[in-house]
Amino acid sequence: MSSVALFVITLTIGIFFILIGQFKVTSKFFPDIHEDMRHEFGRINKVFPFYKITGWRPYAKNYRMTIGIIEIICGIILVVGPGRLKQLANSVLLMLMLGAVYTHYALHDKLDRMAPGIIFGLLLFTRLIICAQEKRSRNEQSTKFTNEEKDNQQEFTDEKKND
Rank of each mutant, 00 (worst) to 15 (best):
M1C: 02
L6R: 13
V8H: 01
T10M: 00
G14T: 11
G14N: 06
K24S: 08
T26M: 08
S27M: 08
K28Q: 14
F30S: 09
H34S: 06
H39W: 07
E40R: 15
I44F: 15
K46G: 00
V47T: 00
Y51Q: 12
T54E: 07
G55P: 09
Y59F: 15
A60S: 15
A60T: 07
R64F: 03
R64M: 15
M65F: 12
I67K: 01
I69D: 04
I69K: 00
I69E: 05
I70G: 00
I72G: 01
L78A: 07
G81N: 05
G83K: 10
K86Q: 15
Q87I: 11
M95C: 14
G99V: 03
Y102G: 04
T103I: 09
A106V: 07
L107I: 03
D109P: 04
G117D: 06
I119R: 02
I119F: 11
L124T: 08
I129K: 07
I130E: 04
C131D: 13
C131L: 04
K135Q: 07
N139S: 12
T146I: 09
E148A: 00
E148T: 00
D151I: 05
N152H: 08
Q153I: 04
Q154L: 09
E159V: 01
K160V: 14
N162K: 14
N162Y: 12
N162S: 11
